[in-house]
Design a binder for these strands. Sequence first.
DNA 1: TCATCAATACCGCATTTGTATGATTTTTAA
DNA 2: TTAAAAATCATACAAATGCGGTATTGATGA
Lengths: 211, 211
Amino acid sequence: MKTSITVAIVEDKEPIRQSLAILVDGADGFFCQATFETAEAALDYLPGHCVDVVLMDIDLPGMNGIDCVRHLKPRCPDTQFMMCTMYDEDETVFEALKAGANSYILKRSPPHKLLEAITELHEGGAPMSSTIARKIAGSFHVNRSTPTELDVLTPREREILDRLSKGHSHKEVAEELFVSPTTVRKHIFNIYEKLQVHSKVEAVNKYLGRR
Amino acid sequence: MKTSITVAIVEDKEPIRQSLAILVDGADGFFCQATFETAEAALDYLPGHCVDVVLMDIDLPGMNGIDCVRHLKPRCPDTQFMMCTMYDEDETVFEALKAGANSYILKRSPPHKLLEAITELHEGGAPMSSTIARKIAGSFHVNRSTPTELDVLTPREREILDRLSKGHSHKEVAEELFVSPTTVRKHIFNIYEKLQVHSKVEAVNKYLGRR
DNA sequence: TCATCAATACCGCATTTGTATGATTTTTAA
DNA sequence: TTAAAAATCATACAAATGCGGTATTGATGA
């Protein structure tokens, strides 16, 4: 037989905590090992009894759920933390991820979705409510509206500039592209002429559109 | 009746393109409106005939799928782009998201998962293969411009770094601050130590909060 | 077909930069 | 008041960079 996924719940509101515990314990393959009303109580118990998955409310009395994760994650690196909350404000989401949460689910999700998410989380995924996922993906999106200035560069030149922008040296770029360092230098020289700059930092600034 | 989700496929390898098209067209509620072998062909057609969802391979001959998305997204802002590829290297994933992709699915995903993902994408989600989602969530945990990292710098060091970020040379900074070039170099060396970098571009990237 | 451009490559020189060591003077904090 | 941190300057060397010229090959286009 396969062992159950052990779960802990941190949630201050009695009825919600109860129904979550019942949901988890009632399902096949899940075991609700502990529930806590406060972040402090969880901090006290969990480091010695690491569970597979923690469902963490954010809006708790005293220490909030995000800070609780921040403290717990280093001490229970194998435990997966699922933020489980009402709100989906940008800042809260990103703070939670920075703190070490692996998943962010809105409480309005239907029960079967929650169980699915716990399983997915335990199997190495990072389940997110769809609006959350969209926020996260969108946070990477940069509108690098080609300021026509970069259009004068050849594809090769752009590739080299891109690597320079990552902090690579002439030699490193040469090795990455399997060409000689002198070739790279020549390309860079051409890039400088086209962009009217005289150093890497200036070129990279133009490339990344920061003025 | 509800209208079908219109889909376009960009994939150079014939058999994969075919089976994707058949999969999509054969399923209820989906309509494969167009397929392309190259990014260039997609760039030519799509801006005039925006579809709901584009399945985009990354490893294409000529322009790659990421650059293709970069060009298409601004012109088809309502179209959702799903990267659909073999590999899951960090850089590729983040580049795709920066370019405007909303979803990133590995080709090894089973067919029914792919259809589910298309639906989820169309409904406002951002479906990711689990390993990808974990990468993305994790990227917030470790990096992201950490204001705390710059806190270790002294005000003077920050001032110097700020001028470096504008593309000024050691000597120029020295003149601006009325100190000797060697002093500036000493400061820069200390900055590098604190930020754990070895070049101006890397330091400036950290200063301006890139990865 | 010829001209142009992109990509490759080499040589060389002066300057800038990265790294290291050491020292003096302010400023700040304990 | 004393110790620690910050800012200043010097010297030195090796590596990286910026700038100039030149040249071959392949692709593109007029």
